[in-house]
Design a protein around this nucleic acid. Sequence first.
RNA 1: GGCGCCGUAGCCAAGUGGUAAGGCAGAGGUCUGCAAAACCUCGAUUCGUCGGUUCGAUUCCGACCGGCGCCUCCA
Length: 476
Amino acid sequence: MAEQVSLFNTLTRRVEPLTPLAPPRVTLYTCGPTVWNYAHIGNFRTFLFEDLLRRWLEYAGYQVFQIMNLTDVDDRTIKAARTAGKQLAVHTAPFTQAFFEDRDYLRIKPAHVYPRATEYMPAMIALVARLLERGVAYKGEDGSVYFAIAKFPTYGRLSRLDRREIKVGARVASDEYAKDDPSDFALWKKADAEDEAVGAAWDAPFGRGRPGWHLECSAMALAEIGKRFAVQTLDIHGGGVDLIFPHHENEIAQSEGATGQVFARHWLHGEFLNVRGSKMSKRHGNFLTARDLREQGVDAAAVRLLFFQTHYRQPVDFTDEALEAAKEGVRRLGEFHQRLQGAGSRERGAELDKLAERLEADVATALNDDLNAPRAVAALFDFVRAVNRELDKPVAPAGTARALAAFVRVTDVLDVLPTARSADPALARWVEERIVARAQARKSKDFKVADVIRAELLAKGVEIEDTPQGTKWRLR
RNA sequence: GGCGCCGUAGCCAAGUGGUAAGGCAGAGGUCUGCAAAACCUCGAUUCGUCGGUUCGAUUCCGACCGGCGCCUCCA
């Protein structure tokens, strides 16, 4: 196992060593998308940081079991289904599918399980029943079931919100009168006509209704790790900073209120993706979806590099300039990769081996320190420059195997190499023919014709490069 | 009002109580028929402002200015 992985823990507001309950196993629960619409790249920034976490933990020798929920029943999905005039399940299905497509486009490693809220009704109902039984939940006058935060003294510990200081303002719940305390939150909402209309209501001993937003995460996390590992405590729970309160605070209350055990040992939260300084969100209308980028032909590697060049706990502004810069970086990495692969491998690669070792060491130091991806990326580019310098030397240093292996290892964690693109055979044949014609022109010093041919190729999006090994070409 | 985040070169962005990584863009150079790629050289005497602590602060403390987030269903 590699060195100690340390991560910032929202619970303590400190970078702390990761201490899994039963190493090398790490149970990782990451809050997934609400499938009422397409997820935007702000959502995906969080999923991408979690992807990096997952990959780094695996690189470090841990056996990660990742759970990502799919919220397919909540206020927004119901409202969206209602607007579309569809049943809930019919409305959410294509967006669930779209989420998986976007995930694959962005090269996010699939979680091991994707529990859907609607498929865990028995677990959720059992959890509510348990909370009622233990006296930390009660049925309100409106028929819904609420969690009594007065019965959970550590409530507010994660978000450091003092209940008494919570401003009673902007978003006052309409069901406030039904609760013992305005801050109590719904575990189970009594079904109303709209819920019934879209098929979002289930029978339960405490009344027909539907789960509150937070309930699913507690129920599904506990169910998944319970049946697999017979534990009630997650090693890591992650999400966006906006979930700290109330979502994660409430998850803790529900889970610990039911099990009496620590729900999650380490809490990780990723910062927002902003647009011109403001949070990207559906509400602001300033969002961009993953499929928008895909349709624009943006290589996912560029998106990954862009995000990884900023620490996950820093807000980052999404701009075209930043994306363009990331595209260039990806291109450079791709060129380098090809060069290294083609550099051959003989003996005597002492210098390269040293650089390879340093790369691995620097990346490990960076990522072990609260997943400092920007520093890992810097180490990668340092390596690229240093190795290029070696390869430029008149007597090329041999023995590139070690360097190539290190580069691939690091690059597998970040996954920022350009997507291989292949030209269609007809174009390839034409390009090869043109290159031969140009070579003849160059041989007879007819550079005018040679340059015309190059312009011709460029017009078709083909870039050429004369090297000692002949003329190479690529699509741009 | 409460909790919290941010302000580092043209742009993006790391970082440390001891004098500023990396990427993109730009300028010059090497190489090239010309290019491209790659490499070399060049950029903040300075890290929002003003104070304080310190032998020394961008890094710690305070105030202020500016931007942002959460405060009950937002990643």
